[in-house]
Simulated scan of single mutants.
Amino acid sequence: MARRMSKPSATPHAYRFGVDSGGTFTDICAMDERTGELSVWKVSSTPADASLGIVDAARSMHSILQERDETAPAVAFFGHGTTVGTNALIERRGAPTALITTHGFRDVLEIARQRRPELYSLQTVRPEPLVPRDLRFEVRERIQFDGSVLVALTEDEVMRLVPAIKISGVGAVAISFLFSFLNPAHERMVKQILERELPDLFVSASSDIVPEFREYERTSTVVMNSYLGPMMRSYIDRLQSALGEIAPSQIMITQSNGGLIGANVAASQPVRTVLSGPSAGVMGALEISRRIDRPNIITFDMGGTSADVSVIRDFTPRYKPMADVDGFPIKIPMIDIHAVGAGGGSIARDDHGLMKVGPRSAGANPGPVCYGLGSLEPTVTDANVAIGVLNQ
């Protein structure tokens, strides 16, 4: 008697998608919500537009699951960890940014805390501010230490800056006034005027991003937010549009503290995602440490562009209220991760007789010389191939 074949269920499997987009590779994992089964896939990243690599990975995984299950999968959750912000900061690929600040305080980014980062080093090189001095504008206004107004800001004072900002060619503006964390009225006024007069600009105010004291750290954070803003907003818009059919639910993005925020929040506050990819790696390592019952571990996450190190103690990641990322302070709560511009694709170069590696990376295209895609610049991966650590 012939054995009767059962028909595949018409009910689609519900999956949770997780994507890690790096400068070189994009990895995707799908978990069946019913069985807990995991499926993984890897594609090359697309440095010119990181969203294309993510969409490619998602579509590939969608096709794999559909072929296996014989029905289109339902994506119940789409989580995304990205190094787009990290790599843009390390490689200085953000938008030209202007800063509007209180009269007399345009140099706060360079004065900083008047501390040498390495007291006894003769070769210390401080990073150039993300906003050059000619793009730092001052307005006459002053909020006092108790939040009261000493010098009121007028609309004419703000309008005076609009033509200069317009012809400067910047793509973003950061606003940071003294004591705005106590009274944000002046910052909000400037933001409203700029959004009205220059609607194509990405504008962020420090009182929205980090309403806390310490003007240098607050200014540095809001400048970084604006510096990354146009690129991140465009990236997220393209990603949501392209993934509409595959992942109709809202895309969630990993924050630097290991939690999740909606894509729309990430688009307006991209500074919260600067360590998005690395923090997702730490949270993944935390889960592994729990499963193997190892409460104290060191995590090391090396990609094609950067290398990230962190510590987990007693099954708890180390957190800090502020971090230094490539020489710039960020006053945002985050997992304590040390990131440097040294990855598998980091390019070696001659710097006045000294060999330096990174922060520039060969990325996914053309990639290292050993990829055979036309690159002639040696990378860390090429060195490993040359000495036999890796097979070509």
Rank of each mutant, 00 (worst) to 15 (best):
P47S: 05
L182D: 07
S207P: 07
R349F: 13
A112F: 09
H80N: 04
A98C: 08
V282T: 05
F105M: 01
S207F: 03
R214Q: 13
S207G: 07
A386E: 01
A205H: 04
G262F: 08
P278I: 05
E138F: 13
G36C: 09
A364I: 02
M302Q: 08
A362F: 11
T24W: 12
G281V: 08
Q114L: 15
S204T: 15
R290H: 09
P230K: 00
F315E: 09
S63D: 13
Y319F: 13
L89N: 00
P378G: 03
A88M: 13
M1D: 13
V40K: 14
H352S: 08
A112K: 10
A30E: 08
I288M: 14
R68H: 15
M189R: 11
I246K: 06
E70T: 10
Y216L: 01
F77S: 14
R136K: 03
E212S: 09
R233Y: 14
V203S: 06
D293C: 11
G79N: 08
T101H: 05
D382E: 07
D32W: 09
I100Q: 03
A88G: 12
V139L: 04
V43P: 00
F328K: 04
V75H: 07
V108N: 00
S289C: 12
R116N: 11
R68N: 13
P117F: 12
V325K: 01
E187I: 03
V151H: 09
P378S: 05
